[in-house]
Design a protein around this nucleic acid. Structure first.
Length: 183
DNA sequence: CGGTTTTGACCAGCGC
DNA sequence: GCGCTGGTCAAAACCG
């Protein structure tokens, strides 16, 4: 893959569940720079990996660039809070906790202005990894859950590895018998 | 017992 | 300054 950061940015199951209706929003949520509109209700209709993966790859690259630019600005410029790039997923779902393949630890919850529903704060449980996410319901449309990610995972997704490792082992095993009929 | 959630306290920006 | 708001800390509670 051309973007080395991409595989660690988002786990497969989360976007995969929503391939059918992923689209870029015109207006990003709050202070998140990028937003993706996802409809879980129409999930699993067909596989559209080619649709999603390139756009997430681009997002990852944009976030990295923006992070670098902002850090340089923060160093040389005046005292302003550094806001890291964020990505917001809009997901129509009754369930708030969407499985994105990573393990998270909740570290806070806040009632936010102009919304009945509280916002929850999560951190990636991997000690070396400081990726965070926020979860809240959209005030305007309660059916929509907004999941905002901040940072890029510096380790692979557990769930992804769980499924991949047996496959790789099997391939290694099969490769020891080059005369086997291929499929 | 170890990890996670809950929840009020605390703190840092921002606008006035 | 001062109050409001959003983000984080940390102690206690909770749970397998």
């Amino acid at each position: 893959m051309e973007d080395e950061n991409f595989p660690y940015l988002f786990a497969p199951s989360f976007p995969l569940a929503s391939l059918n209706s992923l689209s870029l929003l015109d207006q990003p949520m709050q202070n998140s720079r990028y937003a993706l509109d996802i409809d879980l209700a129409s999930s699993m209709v067909n596989g559209g990996e080619n649709l999603v993966f390139p756009s997430l790859s681009t997002l990852s690259r944009n976030m990295k660039e923006e992070e670098n630019v902002n850090k340089i600005k923060a160093k040389s410029g005046r005292k302003k809070k550094y806001i890291p790039p964020r990505v917001a997923f809009h997901t129509r779902s009754a369930e708030e906790i969407l499985d994105d393949g990573y393990k998270w630890r909740k570290y806070g919850q806040k009632t936010v202005k102009d919304s009945i529903h509280p916002r929850s704060y999560y951190r990636c449980t991997q000690h070396t990894c400081n990726v965070k996410k926020q979860i809240q319901r959209l005030a305007k449309d309660t059916g929509i859950v907004v999941t905002t990610y901040e940072g890029i995972h510096n380790h692979p997704c557990e769930k992804l590895m769980e499924t991949l490792i047996p496959l790789v082992k099997q391939l290694q095993f099969l490769s020891e018998f080059p005369n086997l009929p291929s499929f």
